[in-house]
Design a binder for these strands. Structure first.
Lengths: 217, 217
DNA sequence: GCAAAAATGAGTATTAATACCTAGTATCAA
DNA sequence: TTGATACTAGGTATTAATACTCATTTTTGC
């Protein structure tokens, strides 16, 4: 385990230059931290990690190309020693759970104040989990509310994600079926399964929830 | 008209501390610019503008409380001399058009590099419009493609926005009707009107487009 | 005050979606 | 090899949504 007194190397992966600048600014304020690399997309990140691995990775969830949970999964698998902190706008407990399952240690919102961020980095560096307070509380509420384990598995399969994406882009079940060479009934079944998993009862709220969770677009 | 040699005062309205920091960092690099105020939401912004008006306002579109187009409309009406630059993630031409109609002079994406941002500020200060290149090109394409003026009016009325919001949060037409003390048929009519305005044909894509445009949540 | 736009409501028809079911095949991990 | 999941597809029934048209009243802007 790392000593507290040593300098912690941090890498940033975020496609917004402004957020990158902001992070540099905030982290520069702490003598304990050193930013070693900045990446703007998943491809750059994976290429860069081959060369050099930081102790902590601040990972934006919504970057062009790979989705957040995919990228976190890949990084976590290739470099299990890197402590990943998900940095995102998505304040949704389903999404937190998904990311945690992928091995992410910290979850911080982009609306967070700077002390929060530094605290999160220090915490995950000790190997502990860090979830922002508001989200922790929401998760508690959810846990209490769901006696019947409703919120068990919000993870969608590959096919389900594919169909969800097509739903959001205007296609009807029939059209999706034609496109994917499936029966309309198959698509309808997938559709209903997705809705059950996300706990909604119509297409409008399905897309709404999915977008908030970062599952589409 | 302002002289080029004078210092330009800039205010920032953005609910993300990280983006605020990033903007400060970027703008500090230019001797021509001075940041006079930072606001985190629409309420703060309106209160602050009563005290002091900057020449240029960098306005985030998605802040808690008011929606972006509302806020731009209010500021533009109360302080017509302030040059507003919309700063946002929404790279959608419908939205650009809506904002322009509200009197916004510049439209810059958060993914923009810093030179772009400074260039935009300088440009709107001269009273000229500044729209980021990628969006300008999209608008051209759209203009060429739409012979029949399809993209005429994507503006929704207050009632329509209200109903859209409720649609995104799981309610059926009947439920919305009950909630707002309306006939189911009225809600259905609004619903269809909204879809016509946004150019979609079902609820799923409606919510998808509306969220991308920042019209809901 | 007048014209325009928004909000309300309905008629009628067709299509799509939702809510249950069962069930075979394939794939993958323990 | 044996469950567990995912993927596929169909049966049946009900409900909701979509696509048109039209009409009345209320707000709003000038």
């Amino acid at each position: 385990m790392k000593q507290q007194s040593e300098i912690i190397s941090v890498a940033i992966a975020d496609d917004h230059p402004l957020v990158q600048k902001g992070l540099q600014n905030v982290l520069a304020g702490s003598a304990m931290l050193q930013i070693t690399d900045c990446y703007s997309n998943g491809k750059e990140l994976l290429a860069g990690l081959k060369q050099r691995q930081p102790e902590v990775l601040l990972l934006d969830i919504q970057m062009p190309g790979q989705t957040g949970d995919e990228l976190a999964g890949i990084v976590g698998e290739l470099y299990p020693n890197i402590k990943i902190i998900a940095l995102t706008n998505l304040d949704n407990i389903f999404y937190v759970k998904t990311m945690m399952r992928k091995g992410v240690l910290g979850y911080v919102l982009k609306t967070a104040r700077e002390e929060i961020l530094i605290d999160a980095i220090m915490t995950v560096c000790r190997g502990e989990k860090y979830i922002e307070r508001s989200l922790r509380e929401k998760m508690m509420d959810d846990h209490v509310a769901s006696k019947k384990q409703l919120s068990a598995s919000p993870i969608l399969s590959r096919r389900e994600k594919e169909i969800l994406q097509l739903m959001a882009s205007s296609l009807t079940s029939q059209e999706i079926a034609d496109k994917l060479f499936l029966s309309k009934r198959t698509v309808e079944n997938h559709r209903l399964n997705i809705m059950t998993k996300l706990g909604v009862h119509n297409a409008a709220s399905l897309v709404s929830v999915a977008m908030k969770m970062g599952l589409v677009e």
